[in-house]
Design a protein around this nucleic acid. Structure first.
Ligand SMILES: [Mn+2]
Ligand SMILES: [Mn+2]
Ligand SMILES: [Zn+2]
Ligand SMILES: [Zn+2]
Lengths: 153, 153
DNA sequence: CCTCAACTGAATATTACTGTCAATAAGGCG
DNA sequence: CGCCTTATTGACAGTAATATTCAGTTGAGG
């Protein structure tokens, strides 16, 4: 199954240190933000920057970009293509919370849905090729009912 | 099932004209390139630009970007995130050729695989929400065997 | 044919993201 | 507990993919 444990401050530190990296206050704060994000909420780098600014925990954009990339490559976060021009991120949750996205290519309205079979198929495909699984996401690109009605293309 | 017909020059023209758009030589050439691309080959905007340059059918980068976007939003092409920093494109094939991608997040080595169940699940999910399906792609982010061995993170 | 709006290409602009570098602070170790 | 090494941060500057603008062109309907 998807290797996506629930991270605590301690387990994050352990995993970072194992690779010669460090746990910094910034990384801890960013992980916490994503862990407390309500279901269905996705953040861009700028979103996260603004949100932290509000909370008085200002972190530089450089660090935000670096951390998002790092945590995605560690499998802690998922990198999503929900809108044109920039990425969105969410926490990478294990089995019962793992989900996929149905996205309107016109207005970016996104609906989440779950599917155990897909997770199984993805896990098996990675296994078969000897790849170490980080994330597995079905992206359905489509046109939402509202945008179908609006005649604009 | 996925609404991804095999396009001829005539059917492409019909679909464009229906929306008040036009069939241009540039669009025709670009469609042909993707239709003749071997399985497993994916092109970036720059790749396509260079390839056309070689063939003596130079098309401006502006037009290439515009056409790739247009055809993706029409469901003729698929937009893929196979590497960092730029998108790749391939023709959006119907059922027996439809496939997914297993991608190494370190070196971008990509393996394609097919899955009927996934296509069915995606179709159903879109239907249920009244979305008009364009494309449905499982992206598996993982670390390939070679990159697992190289200790670099 | 004729008209007109969609399209192209060249040049320019935008902006998400990356690289650089000096200052700082984790974390291993004695 | 300090010390030392080096990963990390933040400010700033830089890059590159992609979008936009606009004047000239051309497809398509009548
Ligand atoms: Mn989500
Ligand atoms: Mn492919
Ligand atoms: Zn929409
Ligand atoms: Zn690899």
């Amino acid at each position: 199954m998807l290797n996506a444990p629930v991270y605590t401050s301690a387990s994050l530190k352990a995993e970072l240190n194992e690779k010669g990296w460090r746990l910094t206050p910034q990384r801890e704060v960013i992980l916490t933000v994503f862990q407390n994000l309500p279901e269905g909420r996705h953040l861009s780098a700028e979103d996260l920057y603004a949100l932290l600014e509000e909370q008085g925990e200002g972190i530089s954009l450089s660090t935000i970009y670096r951390t998002l990339k790092l945590m995605s490559r560690m499998g802690i976060l998922r990198e999503l293509e929900l809108a044109e021009g920039h990425k969105h991120y969410e926490i990478n949750q294990p089995h019962p919370h793992h989900h996929h996205h149905l996205i309107c290519v016109r207005c970016s309205k996104t609906i989440e849905f779950k599917s155990d079979p897909i997770l199984k198929i993805g896990t098996k495909a990675a296994q078969k090729e000897g790849y170490h699984l980080l994330d597995c996401q079905l992206s359905i690109h489509a046109v939402c009912p509202t945008c179908q009605r609006s005649l604009l293309v």
